[in-house]
Computed example of a mutant assay.
Amino acid sequence: MKRISLIFLLSIISLNLFAQHRKFGYAELGGSSIFTSVNFDMRFTKESNDGLGFRVGAGSSFGAFDIDKIYTAPVGINYIFGKGKNGLIVGANSVFAINGEPKEKKSDDFRSVIFSADVGYRYTPTNNGFSFQATYTPLFKTTEGTMPFWIGVGIGYSWK
């Protein structure tokens, strides 16, 4: 019972600590996860759309384009330049990737860490609402080598 109470208390405290920080939940096509992903992004600064932040997500290739099903988990840090609704996003990500096909269907069994950079535009309203981002995202150390020409488009909801 003491553990449950402690976990509950820590959860409430952490929610209050991040209550006024800008959050952005979005689906991304392309980008760091290569195909599709669902992501959560949050600023470290209170009451602001800009500044230092982080992103975590989960993605998959869903077996598209006749390749193996690949699961990805992007984790990154980013900085948004610009006050107000419009900003320039610059970031670096590590993407953990594994082959998700059943053993009998796998063409290759791999686990990999892909590195990527983000440079792009983010629209975030000053209040809660629809948000958008478009990024140029070169990928490094993929199974195919470096992919210098890759883009991502994310659409979601932003709130405080």
Rank of each mutant, 00 (worst) to 15 (best):
D109Y: 15
T126C: 04
R122I: 14
S61V: 10
L139I: 07
R43K: 05
R122W: 09
Y123I: 04
E101V: 02
S112G: 11
P148C: 05
L9D: 03
G59P: 00
Y26E: 01
M147H: 07
V75T: 01
F40I: 08
V75P: 02
L6K: 15
S107W: 06
T124I: 14
V38T: 09
W159A: 09
N78Q: 13
K105C: 07
K2F: 14
W159Q: 10
E47L: 10
Y121P: 11
L9C: 00
R43D: 00
I80E: 06
D50I: 04
V75I: 04
G51E: 14
D108L: 05
A58M: 14
W150A: 02
G59V: 09
Q20R: 13
K141D: 15
D68G: 15
Y123P: 03
F18Y: 07
E104W: 02
M1C: 13
L29K: 00
G25Q: 09
F65T: 05
G120I: 07
G63I: 06
Y79P: 15
L10Y: 09
A73S: 13
G31T: 06
Y123Q: 04
F65Y: 12
G87T: 05
K103G: 02
F149K: 06
G152W: 01
N78H: 15
T146E: 12
N16F: 06
G100I: 08
F40E: 10
K83W: 14
N16W: 02
G156E: 04
S107V: 09
N16Y: 05
T45E: 13
T124G: 08
F130T: 10
G53M: 09
T36E: 02
A117F: 12
F18L: 08
G152N: 02
F110C: 03
V95A: 00
P148Y: 04
I34K: 10
W150N: 10
S32M: 01
L6H: 12
K141Q: 15
G76M: 12
F18M: 04
Y121Q: 07
G30S: 04
S5I: 02
G51S: 14
G120A: 08
K85N: 12
M42T: 03
T146K: 13
T45H: 11
D66W: 02
F96W: 06
R111H: 02
P148Q: 05
D66T: 01
R43W: 00
F24L: 11
V38E: 08
R122V: 14
S158H: 14
I67K: 13
F115W: 05
F44I: 00
